[in-house]
Nucleic acid binder design. Sequence first.
DNA 1: CTACCTGCAAAAAGTTTGCAGGACA
DNA 2: TGTCCTGCAAACTTTTTGCAGGTAG
Lengths: 166, 166
Amino acid sequence: MSNDLASVEVSVSPAEKFEEYLRSQGMQFTATRRIVLEEVFSDHEHFDADQLVERLSHRKDGRRVGRATVYRALNSMVEAGLLRKVARANDREVYEHDYGYPQHDHLICTKTGEMIEFRNDVIRELIEKVAAEHGFQVTGHRLEVYGLSKEAHEPPKRRHSMLDRI
Amino acid sequence: MSNDLASVEVSVSPAEKFEEYLRSQGMQFTATRRIVLEEVFSDHEHFDADQLVERLSHRKDGRRVGRATVYRALNSMVEAGLLRKVARANDREVYEHDYGYPQHDHLICTKTGEMIEFRNDVIRELIEKVAAEHGFQVTGHRLEVYGLSKEAHEPPKRRHSMLDRI
DNA sequence: CTACCTGCAAAAAGTTTGCAGGACA
DNA sequence: TGTCCTGCAAACTTTTTGCAGGTAG
């Protein structure tokens, strides 16, 4: 009774949820951690640790955060249920929002690196069903579909290409 | 007409397929590479680079292979279509046979690390369908279902022996 | 004042690469 | 003989950790 339409219980903001988690761990919701949180939730794009470090390292204002701190904050946010590691690209873990955002999977273009989100409840149900058949208790999953996005395999226009339509 | 029951065209042995690939790349099917290949195909278990290096590094007979060579061979075997990277465990890439072996996915126990293989064609078809809806051309996928295996979440019962009869 | 944080630099861990000597054709 | 291979060690990459000084309560 809680597996479908995960876009629920968003009555609490990411900041509140993070604070709650940190408190529960005897940690503090410091100004620095708030900066990282805000940067992370400033948009819905996928990102990796390095990109975030980049965005938070050299800034004029006092909002710069060191590499180690960013990594530590990311790990905390994953544990807090705010983020989830969604895939791996260029040998880096890719993160995305996992709070107040419906679960979904990805089509990953092996040529452009583009990641297309999709959601399919039947696949989700089948995963549960298969797991159940094995007495396996599911806590999550990661489905990465590799291939070529429309832009990547559909020749930029004319140029006829070998592959055109089926 | 070639997506189902991938247990086909196994008319060529892994060795032959590897040799063919290497030749096509201007590379040689050396004795060392054969040793790696044989070790890899000596059983159907999942393995990571380190385990293979371990098995091939200190041996009495002349069949020892260095770490760098093992890594290079693994990469070649993946490119040759003999192996595929199947998941990631303990920060290591996990490999499995991808030749003459049907495609499948995995239930991964987050407590014991156990990996249970399963195969579900409906999920497979749905992935194709979803991809098609996005104009995405699938070349492969990776589905890792995380959770607790039967052994991990079902208390060991009394002390009867884990495994007794089914 | 004590406990927790932060940034830096160093350390880990997995994988790749440069190189000198060896093997294959 | 010339090219490809191999093993070693060094290099690289991403992520983690030790530590000294700083901050929150």
